[in-house]
Amino acid sequence: MIYEESMKIYHFIHILSVCLFILFGLPENSWALQSHSAPEGIYVHQMAHLLFMGALGYLYWHTRKSPAIKSKGWKYLQIFCFFLIAWNLIAFTGHQAFGQLTPADFIDKSSWKEQLAPPITWIKVLYYFTKMDHFLNVPGLFALVISLRTFYHEALMEENR
């Protein structure tokens, strides 16, 4: 029995060594590996915003329609979803707006006096407001805190009962 087990391990190590040699010893033949160009990062990030927004939308919709979850905490969670969806939308827009700007659109770059250079276009105004996306993000997270705090107090009361 012990001999048979030893033989199996030996064969496995042998096959693994061959595979590793093919992968790393002959890289010019590895066609499966794909290169990632510069804009891919922002695309993925924007897609992540859309995914996050969709997921939050689903959560909002489900917590509204589900009769199984009736609590004030869910109302706060729905507010959180609402703010975060709005934040995602603003952030997405901000990223898109930033993509439209050039370095020439900024004055005194990398200093406390940094400004958006005139003339003031609507894309610059849009970028300026979307830059203050925390006005949506922070209230959203505050709603999440209130929501969880409500859940906690309710659960505590239930346990004490």
Partner: peptide, 23 residues
Amino acid sequence: MNGIPLLPAVTVEFVGSALAIFF
């Protein structure tokens, strides 16, 4: 014609980030 100073937006960004972490 003056530009739009970014300091308020940067301040909101900085404080907002800290608050977001806290909450």
